[in-house]
Amino acid sequence: MAEHKNKIVGLCFSAFVVDRVHAVDIETLTEYRNQHVGTAVAYAFIEECKRKGVDPYWDCMPENIGSNRLAKKMGMSLSFDYPIVWYNIP
Rank of each mutant, 00 (worst) to 15 (best):
A2E: 09
E3S: 09
E3K: 10
H4L: 12
K5C: 14
N6C: 08
N6I: 00
N6G: 10
N6A: 11
K7A: 10
I8L: 15
I8S: 13
V9H: 11
V9F: 11
G10I: 06
L11K: 14
C12D: 10
C12L: 10
F13Y: 12
S14T: 15
A15V: 02
F16V: 09
F16W: 15
F16A: 12
F16E: 13
V17Y: 03
V18H: 12
V18L: 12
V18S: 12
R20K: 14
V21R: 08
V21I: 15
H22W: 14
H22G: 10
H22S: 13
A23I: 13
V24L: 11
V24W: 01
V24K: 02
V24P: 05
D25E: 14
I26Y: 04
E27Y: 12
E27S: 14
T28N: 05
T30G: 07
E31H: 10
Y32W: 10
Y32F: 14
Y32A: 04
Y32D: 07
R33H: 01
R33N: 01
N34V: 00
N34E: 07
Q35H: 08
Q35K: 09
Q35V: 02
H36F: 05
V37G: 06
V37N: 05
V37F: 06
V37K: 03
G38Q: 02
G38D: 03
T39D: 00
A40D: 01
A40C: 02
V41Y: 00
V41K: 00
Y43K: 09
Y43I: 00
Y43V: 03
A44E: 09
A44F: 00
A44D: 10
A44G: 02
A44P: 00
F45E: 07
F45A: 07
F45Q: 00
I46V: 13
E47A: 05
E47H: 02
E47L: 04
E48I: 09
C49H: 04
C49W: 01
K50C: 00
K50Y: 01
K52M: 12
G53D: 10
G53M: 02
D55R: 14
P56Q: 08
Y57V: 06
W58D: 06
W58G: 10
C60L: 09
C60I: 07
C60M: 12
M61A: 13
M61I: 13
M61T: 11
M61L: 12
P62M: 02
P62C: 03
E63H: 11
E63T: 11
N64I: 07
N64Y: 04
I65S: 08
I65M: 06
I65A: 08
G66L: 07
S67P: 05
N68F: 02
N68M: 07
N68R: 09
N68P: 05
R69F: 04
A71R: 03
K72G: 04
M74F: 04
G75Q: 04
G75I: 03
S77R: 06
S77E: 09
S77L: 00
S79Y: 05
F80M: 13
D81K: 11
D81H: 09
D81P: 00
Y82F: 04
Y82N: 02
Y82M: 01
Y82A: 02
Y82C: 03
P83A: 03
I84K: 06
I84P: 01
I84E: 08
V85M: 05
W86R: 15
Y87A: 15
Y87M: 14
N88P: 06
N88Q: 14
I89L: 15
I89S: 15
I89T: 14
I89D: 15
P90Y: 11
P90N: 11
